[in-house]
Every structure is written in C-alpha cells, then in structure tokens.
Amino acid sequence: MGNNTRDIRRRIKSVRNTAQITKAMQMIAAAKMRKAQQRALDARPYAQMLNRILVSISKHTEDELHPLLQARPVKRTLVVLVGTDKGLCGGLNTNLFREVQQFDAASTDFVAVGRKAVDFLARTKRSLLADFPMRDTPDYAEIKPVAHFIMDRFLADEADRVVVLYTDFVNTLTQVPSAHELLPITEFHMGGKPVEQKGDAAEEEMSVFKYEPSAGEVLGALLPFYVGNELYTMILNARASEQSARMVAMKNATDNANTLIKDLTLEYNKIRQAAITTEILEISTAQMTMG
C-alpha cells in the first residue's frame, strides 16, 4: 500500500512540474505574440505610405516596365519557406509543410527561414539554396538580406517566380498556411493582402508630384523597399502565428496536466482512505476478539 501511494505522490509532483513549465511557456508565447503583432502594427504606416506612392507612380510610368514587375514564363520557382525555430507549437509546421507538396520538386528551389523549415527541406531532399536564421521578433535589418537574395535570383533569371509560403495570422485561434506570390509584382499588396483602391481625391493629389530625378528611377528605387517590406510583414505574421499556436498548445498542455493532477489526487485520496478504513477495521476487530 505504502509503495502505491508514494508512486502516485511522485507522479502528481512531476505532473505539477510539467504544468508549471507549460504554463510559463504559455505566458512567454503570449508576450512574444503581442510583440510580433505590435511590430507588424508599427510597420503599417510605412507600408501604407510605400503603397500609396507606388500605386500612383506606377500609373505615371508607362515607358518600360521595371524588371521586377515583368511576368515571364515560369520555368523555375523559388519558394521562401517560413517555418519556426522551435517545436511545441501544435500542428503549425506540419500544416505549413503539407503545402510544400504543391510545388514540383524538379523545378523548385527553396530558401528557408527557421530551423524546422531547414530540417524539413533536408529530410524531403528538396533543393535548398540558403537558410536565414531569424530571431523571434526580427527587425527590418534582418529581413533585408533575404529580400536582396530573392531579388537577385529573380533579376538574374535564376527564378521566374518567387512565392512566400508562411502561416498567416488570422486570430489567436486560427492560423492559415498561405502561399503568396511576391515576384514578379503584378499587383501591389500589403502584407499579402491586396491594397484597397483609394478614391479619386488621393489620386489627384499624387498626380501633381514632380519626380526627382525621374518617376522611373524613383519607382526602381522604391520597389526593393516594397519587396523588403512585404517580406517583413509576412515574416512577422508568421511569427505571430507561431507564438499564438504555441500559446494554445501550451494552454491545452497545462489544462491536461491539471486534469491529470486532479484524477491522480482523487485516486491517491481513495487509496489513502481505503487504507485508513482497513486499519480501523483491523483495530476494531482486534478489540472485539480481545473484549
């Protein structure tokens, strides 16, 4: 009997420890998610202004399309796969990596962000060109090398299409794996969503601008900023998704651990009480025979 209760006590203790850890991870994930969301929010005015300028300039430069805007027959596709560094975030990576199957192995190259993405691509023997390590809430400077890398590949004709595969953040409970075509730029987006068209008033206001040195050159210089910012927004989105998925996963783990503790405690008390009852029974039986 004594052995049994000791075992249960030990199990309760270890489950309680686990619950404590998962609870802590849950709270950390919550804080990190807020941080990533805040970053994405902070970047909005920048993205909005960039878009406003781009949409209007592109209407004023008819001469020749900038190379980044030119669609061409797709022979090779480059996919930027935005995974996570750590696990324990539910089915997030599994769901995302399932989407990789839609890309033909022979004509697709990959760029990985996050260690899980690297592992996955290595395991499935895909062509991995580069991987970029990234912190939990990356700042803009960390994204720039990735943006430059993909633009260089595109401009050098080594990729005819660049797709970003990431987990879009809908809300804390819902994250959707989504593939967004970043290059060529056929339509201006903001964080993977089409820009809502502005009214004529804004259009009028923009059309009076004089461009220095020229509209074409300003556009050429703006596009890399646009690509960088799009990528930045999407990666922040993926990070917010990761953290919220982890938060939910850890919350479930904590709840499960607490249920387990409850069950174990109940069982422990039952055994304890049974033991006491037997003991009393023994004593009273002994007394009766004595008496």
Binding site: I53, I57, V208, F209, K210, Y211, E212, P213, E217, V218, A221
Partner: peptide, 19 residues
C-alpha cells in the same frame, strides 16, 4: 540630402517626390 544634392524644404514647397 537627396540624390541630386541637398535641398531645403520650406512651407508651401512645390510637390516633389524625391530619393
């Protein structure tokens, strides 16, 4: 500091978009 030299911007400047 613009790509085509320094410019000073005062109120009521003409509309310009520059690098």
């Amino acid at each position: 500091p613009t790509t085509s030299g320094e410019i000073g911007v005062l109120p009521n400047h003409e509309p310009i978009m520059t690098m």
